[in-house]
C-alpha cells in the first residue's frame, strides 16, 4: 500500500493541485483543461509510446460523445450509464478501426485517420441527420438525472468528478508504462522490424496500444458530452484535428505530465488570445511551426530533461578536456 502510494501519490497530488486552483480560477476553465488533457493523453500515448501519429483524433472522441449523447437523448436519463454507453461505443470503434489501421505504415496511418475524421464528421452531420439532427445537435442537459452527491450541472461537482477520472487515467497510464506491455510498446516504436525478427507479434501490441489510447479519447468524449449536456458534429470537426497535435507537442509527447502542462498553457493562451483576436488559426498555426522548429520536445520534457542534459554536458566537457 505504501509502495503504491509512493509510486502514484504524485499523480493524486498533481490533480488535487488542479482542484485547489479552483480558488483562483474559473471552474469552466479548469474543467476544460482537465477534459482536454485527457484527450491529449490519448494522442500522446499513441505518438509517444507507439510511434503512431494520428491526424484524426476527433473521430475517436466524437464517436464516444455521440454514444453518450444518443443514449441520453433517446433512451435513458442516467449520465453515468450514458458515459458507459459512450465508452463502449468508443472502444468498439477503436477496436475495429485499429484492426485495419495499425497495419499501415506511418504516413498511411496518419492520413487514413485524417480521412476517417472527415468522414465521421460527415456521417454525423449529414448521413445520419434523421437521428443526429445534424448541426442542431442533440440536447439532453435537462434530462440528465441529478444526485445529491453528484450533480453534473454543478461546475464544482463536475470538476471534482473529472479530476478523479483524470487521476485514474494517469495512474493506469503510469502503471502501463512500468509494465511489460509498456516496454513492448516502446520497443515497437524504436524498432518494429527487429521485434518481428525476434518473433513478437507487433501487430497485436500495436492494436492493443491503439485501443487503449483511444479508450482514453473516448473517456474525454463522454465527459464533454455530459458536461455540455449537448453534442453536435462540431466535436469531430476535422478542422480541429490539429489542435490536439499542437497541444501534445507543446507539452511534449510521451511524458506523463506533458499533456496536462501543454493543455494548461494552450487553453490559457487561447482564452487570452481569442478574447482580443478572432483569427485563432493564425495563432495556433504559428505556435505549431515554432514548436516544431524549436525542437519537437515540448515544454514538459524540456523541464524533465534539463538536469540530465546539464550532467551530460559536464561529463562531455570533462572528457574532451582530458
Amino acid at each position: 500500500m505504501m509502495r503504491l502510494l509512493k509510486t502514484y501519490g504524485t499523480i493524486l497530488l498533481v490533480f488535487a493541485g488542479v482542484g485547489v486552483l479552483r480558488l483562483a480560477l474559473p471552474g469552466a476553465f479548469l474543467i476544460h483543461v482537465t477534459i482536454f488533457s485527457i484527450y491529449t493523453m490519448a494522442f500522446s500515448f499513441l505518438m509517444g509510446r507507439l510511434g503512431l501519429v494520428s491526424f484524426g483524433q476527433p473521430a475517436y472522441m466524437g464517436i464516444a460523445a455521440y454514444g453518450t449523447g444518443l443514449y441520453l437523448h433517446y433512451f435513458g436519463t442516467n449520465p453515468l450509464l450514458g458515459m458507459m454507453v459512450g465508452i463502449i461505443a468508443g472502444v468498439a470503434f477503436a477496436g475495429v478501426i485499429g484492426g485495419l489501421f495499425v497495419r499501415l505504415s506511418s504516413s498511411y496511418f496518419t492520413l487514413a485517420n485524417l480521412a476517417l475524421c472527415a468522414i465521421g464528421f460527415f456521417v454525423f452531420q449529414r448521413a445520419l441527420v434523421h437521428i443526429t439532427r445534424g448541426d442542431t445537435g442533440l440536447w439532453y442537459l435537462g434530462r440528465m438525472e441529478r444526485w445529491p452527491l453528484l450533480n453534473f450541472r454543478d461546475p464544482d461537482h463536475f470538476l471534482t468528478f473529472a479530476l478523479i477520472v483524470a487521476a485514474g487515467i494517469w495512474i493506469v497510464v503510469k502503471g502501463l508504462d512500468r509494465s511489460v506491455f509498456g516496454a513492448a510498446c516502446l520497443a515497437v516504436k524504436a524498432n518494429e522490424r527487429k521485434l518481428q525478427f525476434l518473433g513478437y507479434n507487433t501487430y497485436r501490441i500495436k492494436w492493443l496500444g491503439f485501443v487503449m489510447a483511444n479508450s482514453i479519447a473516448a473517456v474525454a468524449g463522454t465527459l464533454y458530452a455530459v458536461y455540455f449536456g449537448f453534442v453536435s458534429p462540431a466535436i469531430m470537426d476535422v478542422l480541429r484535428a490539429p489542435e490536439v497535435v499542437v497541444v501534445g507537442l507543446l507539452g511534449g509527447v510521451g511524458s506523463l505530465y506533458g499533456p496536462l502542462i501543454g493543455t494548461f498553457v494552450y487553453i490559457a493562451m487561447q482564452d487570452l488570445v481569442s478574447a482580443i483576436f478572432v483569427y485563432w488559426e493564425l495563432v495556433v498555426g504559428t505556435m505549431l511551426v515554432l514548436v516544431m522548429m524549436a525542437g519537437e520536445r515540448g515544454i514538459a520534457s524540456l523541464l524533465e530533461s534539463a538536469p540530465r542534459l546539464l550532467r551530460m554536458r559536464a561529463r562531455h566537457d570533462r572528457s574532451s578536456a582530458g
Partner: peptide
C-alpha cells in the same frame, strides 16, 4: 505537422 501549421 509543420506544414499543417503553415496551412493554418
Amino acid at each position: 505537422i509543420t506544414s499543417y501549421g503553415v496551412l493554418l
